[in-house]
Write a protein that binds this DNA or RNA. Structure first.
Lengths: 202, 202
DNA sequence: GCGCTGAAAATTGTCAACAATGTACACTTG
DNA sequence: CAAGTGTACATTGTTGACAATTTTCAGCGC
């Protein structure tokens, strides 16, 4: 565990790491996870690992069966996915609409920095990095709302969407989509910004 | 802990009990919860209590501050509540629409039984019982969908809505609203059933 | 060979002790 | 007396041992 993220709690660090592995398909749906394995891998006891499991299962990334263990969750079915997309859109549009007039230059600076990371990931065709920074981009927007509970509401829904990143033929399109959002925000054009955000969530 | 619910895991029993206390306002927003207190109250160690805390915090009922403790969450703000209502409506309507043609006589029997509990709670003006059975009613519908993940998706959203049950002047209206849903389902009238469901969620 | 039984192994669940962190408050200092 | 400081105290975080449960698989009867 890198000492860079000491600000985070042990279970959170483990959860973040596992989340990465699930989102990048290093762990595939159905894969079983054993507490002992991970506690040895991370050099901690089983307690924090258990907590990370619980956290990720509430986020829909893992499935927990009492007395049996934990498995990586299946992707949403083709029937349910459109619902999840719609829910996530509703939340993000709500947030963008709500904060739009109060977006500061610092906010845009932060988001530009993430956009640069997205661009770099696209240019090097690093899908894992793209998944991570895409997530960071939307997280940053949600988190800029005063009501911190919105992030907790958004997270389990967004997670269920991010489990597969293969909708784009041209990976650079992801960068362009996110750029369009920020450009519209910078131009103060709310309807276009919302439209661009909606187009990006699918 | 009553021996009736031995089928459930220890943290789940504790979480269920705490949920009841939060939803019935026995525990008010901002109230601090101490692991020791509850572990003594339930006669278990702190481990299961911690897990219950984590579970309920992911459901939006508790707020967790690392190294500081747990508090009962605030109700959604007036700004956010309409969003939560809309999200919950979307999910429940999606489910009802999806299962409608496959609803069995047994399903309706189960839901009728819950409706009877709702009626009894309304007649005795028992708001706590009403909250519980109202929740059970909608849970039962969601759970009758094949995709079990829908329940996990629905729960944290529904919880954020249920934290306050005071929108009705006449408490019997809650019974009538739920009855309308089942009547329409029994009549095979999908649009009316969906309309009745939407009217009930607000 | 097939299915059942039951003991052994693997795994999760719970607990109590200890460590780390945060809080309250008396005390010092200017 | 106000502001800052240090030291107990209270509370959460982590750990390793033990208990309960599930899984595996060898042995047995048919």
């Amino acid at each position: 565990m890198s000492a860079i993220e000491i600000y985070r709690t042990l279970p959170e660090q483990i959860a973040a790491r596992l989340r990465q592995d699930v989102l990048s398909s290093k762990l595939k749906p159905g894969d079983p996870l054993r507490e002992i394995d991970l506690s040895e891998r991370f050099g901690v006891s089983r307690g924090p690992v258990r907590e990370a499991f619980r956290q990720l299962s509430q986020q829909g990334l893992l499935v927990l069966e009492p007395n049996k263990g934990v498995r990586v969750a299946q992707n949403p079915s083709v029937e349910v996915r459109p619902l999840v997309v719609e829910l996530r859109r509703k939340i993000e549009v709500f947030v963008l609409n709500s904060i739009f007039e109060r977006i500061t230059a610092e906010d845009l600076e932060d988001w530009d920095a993430i956009l640069a990371d997205i661009k770099a990931a696209c240019e090097s065709s690093d899908v894992d990095a793209l998944t991570e920074h895409d997530l960071r981009f939307h997280q940053a927007i949600i988190r800029s709302h005063d009501d911190k509970d919105l992030f907790a509401l958004w997270q389990p829904i967004a997670m269920r969407m991010m489990m597969r990143y293969n909708r784009l033929d041209d990976i650079m399109e992801s960068y362009r989509e996110h750029k369009r959002i920020l450009d519209a925000i910078r131009a103060g054009d709310k309807p276009i910004a919302i439209k661009a955000l909606e187009d990006n969530i699918q």
